[in-house]
Design a protein around this nucleic acid. Structure first.
Lengths: 134, 134
DNA sequence: TTTATTCCCACCAAATTCGTAGGGATTATA
DNA sequence: TATAATCCCTACGAATTTGGTGGGAATAAA
């Protein structure tokens, strides 16, 4: 049970962008150096975040990335939902869960409850609060 | 973020043992067939559970496994702590976490909170309750 | 045009997961 | 003691995931 490096990197970058606060795009290079994340690896992460609409990209010189939404609204759950291939605690509650035992499985309700608990907690942390160390 | 098949199997077997309720050891073969878990794979899982003291094994003819403790006391958290190599939500809070950024990491407190939330929830489910479908 | 930047696609090494295989060791029963 | 049922140990292996690289093409500002 673990959050991937990709997810942790994504969250840190989003927090860094929130901390900057500005509307000027921050280049990938600066983010990678500042957060000590491999440049090329972060590139892939930013693409995913952009496709999900969490950041906007500007190409060309003086380009970079900036937050699309309000850091007081965007939460850790929003970010991790994008990067984590499966956000489910157990495969049983994942996207392509097709367990023949599902009907009579004694543990399924617990996995659902666990998913809910995780989601609830992650929704409590906004980028703004994380950036300010609250 | 996922609980491994090993963990899910372990939990199901522990629940099956709780459902049996008796003090007679249940042979591996019966557990494997009943829970549709590969025999040899389950063998390794049972060894881990036995080493952790959650089940007692009896060797030889008419041998098998039985719960060591009270199913009203033993929880899902107790079981999963044994089988999951790392029970931490993020590597940052794992056993051998040695991140140089730990001191100033804005996300570390959140990972700790997440660990706590997961543990709290899993501690709420006893084997007895799970077996009875509560 | 030069320079700085994102975007796209393919590739790769290491680790992990989910098992399988086979042979011992131990013990209850007959 | 003989036998059968069971646990115990070690090793292997295929598939998948993870974490990361590399080389360019498109785009935009100076």
């Amino acid at each position: 049970m673990i959050v991937s490096a990709k997810g942790r990197y994504a969250l840190r970058v989003m927090i860094a962008l929130a901390a900057k606060g500005g509307r000027e795009p921050v280049p990938l290079k600066e983010l990678a150096l500042g957060e000590e994340i491999p440049h090329k690896f972060l590139e892939g992460i930013m693409t995913e975040l952009a496709k999900a609409g969490l950041v906007e990209s500007t190409r060309g010189k003086n380009g970079g990335y900036r937050l699309t939404g309000d850091p007081k609204v965007c939460t850790a759950a929003d970010v991790l939902r994008v990067t984590e291939s499966s956000f489910a605690a157990a495969a049983c509650t994942g996207a392509n869960a097709e367990c023949p035992r599902a009907e009579r499985c004694p543990t399924l309700p617990m996995w659902r409850a666990l998913d809910g608990a995780v989601d609830d907690l992650l929704k409590k942390y906004t980028l703004d609060e994380l950036a300010r160390g609250i």
